[in-house]
Nucleic acid binder design. Structure first.
Length: 492
DNA sequence: ATGTGC
């Protein structure tokens, strides 16, 4: 396989930063500089962090030096009390992140967690439903449906109010405990009419949609002592690459698996990509700062400024961080559930009673304990054997439902999308070609209140999905179950 | 990612 386009230039840029990169059979290997100042500051005993980080990349696409540098930084994080990185790797939607951690990075640690590696967008993830409705019938009443959804997603026309008790249960327990608490929800609250189906679908949510949270970490105004909570952030899509998309199941590749998962050719489908909104921002930001404050006072900050929390040095802080992260994760699971429920209710309202079951819901921005170690995925899906994996293309291209293969070389993970190739700034700047053709928007039905969102998130902003999927199949990360074609996309 | 900022 040939080397990527900008390989030589990349080597030069990275050599200046003390990084050595090789390319072999679909995979980059970033070798880190051997000695750092850090080594001399403190006896970091027997354990040292990873010396290499592997990246799976689609053939013929450039990769940014900034992203490689960020991955190298992540790989060499360690804590003087003994925490270290066991393994670090990246998926083919790899690109630089704003907060110092590249999207598509996966890091396995021992003895430490890294709040900054998860970042603000805690439990960002993907949720897929199928619906027993043909594309033809859907399009007949498309305008009415879109009008109703715009109200729900952009203007909050549906009541998602909760009692104080229910709000606390949401943060504390995630989906199951929250559904229990919903039994006494105010009348008119949207999930009340469908509690049984939502309970039946819990086993199709990663971790059962439940982590060990504590409402004490939630923003104060969302966990009052008594009264009704009206949270303007809940059941909203959010910005950036988040979306809700109506799709059609275009083609089944793995018939047996699709049958078991309840997916059939010609069905309508909808995919939700969203996370924990402001709650994750609040908790992620708080803990990034707390991890920095907990860094040993007598040591200089490491130059990458990504601070781990050590199990040996600060066991309580590690426990509390994981609980705080879980609190935001619970909110993320329920946000996606509500976005889907709003859509399912409107489908039934417009097209009559129809089945629209959940296929799967999985996070791609989260710390998970797997095989006795922490695995932190930043824009990467878990892809364990037999597990459903959802990888969306841009709003103009195919999305994929896949089955995980549990490739340990890539820490049982897969990409969470195609990966951005052009920055928002680049696409929006003066003088840029903003024609439909140049942006790949021809024939794309994008519902948004903001024109700049269509431009920032246009198909031209992303890699084509096909090579991104192909390289992951070739490397044994996933197998294709079904292809989903976009029909229309909601972007906030 | 974020009622944002190159």
């Amino acid at each position: 396989m040939q080397q990527p386009k900008n390989f030589k230039r990349l080597l030069q840029a990275l050599a200046k930063q003390g990084l050595d990169v090789t390319y072999n059979d679909r995979t980059y290997s970033v070798r880190l500089k051997d000695s750092s100042e850090f080594d001399r500051q403190d006896a970091c005993p027997t354990n040292t962090s990873a010396k290499t980080a592997e990246i799976l990349l689609p053939e013929g696409f450039p990769v940014e030096a900034k992203a490689l540098k960020q991955l190298a930084n992540l790989a060499q994080i360690r804590h003087p009390a003994g925490g270290f990185v066991c393994k670090c790797c990246a998926t083919p939607d790899f690109h630089p992140g704003d907060a110092g951690v590249a999207i598509g990075s996966i890091v396995q640690t021992e003895g430490m967690v890294i709040p900054a590696a998860v970042g603000s967008d805690i439990n960002c993830g993907m949720r897929l439903h199928v619906a027993d409705l043909s594309l033809e019938k859907f399009l007949q009443k498309r305008d009415r449906f879109v009008q109703l959804m715009k109200g729900d997603y952009f203007f909050g026309t549906r009541d998602v109010a909760m009692t104080a008790k229910t709000s606390r249960a949401l943060f504390q327990y995630g989906i199951p405990g929250w559904l229990d608490a919903m039994l006494d929800a105010p009348t008119g609250s949207i999930v009340k009419s469908n509690l049984h189906q939502l309970a039946d679908e819990i086993d199709r949510v990663y971790l059962g949609g439940s982590m060990n949270g504590d409402w004490k970490w939630a923003p104060e105004e969302l966990v009052p002592d008594t009264g009704i909570v009206r949270d303007g952030g809940l059941a909203t899509i959010g910005g950036g690459n988040h979306f809700v998309e109506i799709q059609v199941v275009e083609e089944i590749e793995d018939k047996a698996t699709a049958f078991v998962w309840g997916v059939r050719q010609g069905q309508l489908a909808f995919t939700i990509h969203s996370g924990s909104r402001n709650v994750g921002k609040y908790i992620g930001g708080m803990w990034r700062d707390r991890a920095q404050s907990a860094w040993p006072k007598h040591l200089k900050y490491p130059d990458y400024r990504l601070f781990p929390l050590s199990v040996t040095a600060n066991p309580n802080l590690v426990r509390e961080y994981l609980q705080a992260e879980a609190t935001a994760a619970n909110y993320g699971f329920i946000n996606r559930l509500l976005l889907a429920e709003l859509l399912r209710l409107r489908l039934r309202e417009v097209y009559g009673d129809l089945a629209a079951p959940l296929v799967y819901d999985l996070p791609h921005n989260i710390t998970l304990f797997e095989g006795n170690r922490w695995v932190i995925r930043k824009g990467a899906c878990p892809a364990h054997p037999q597990q459903p994996v959802i990888i969306p293309g841009s709003m103009g291209t195919t999305s994929y439902l896949l089955i995980g293969k549990g490739n340990s070389e890539f820490l049982s993970s897969a990409s969470h999308g195609a990966g951005r190739v052009r920055s928002r700034f680049d696409l929006n700047r003066e003088g840029a070609d903003k024609s439909e053709e140049a942006l790949g928007l021809t024939g794309v039905d994008c519902i948004t209140l903001r024109e700049e969102r269509r431009i920032e998130e246009a198909p031209a902003a992303y890699k084509p999905i096909q090579p991104v999927i192909d390289v992951q199949i070739a490397a044994g990360l996933v197998g294709v179950v079904a292809r989903l074609k976009p029909v229309l996309t909601f972007k906030a």
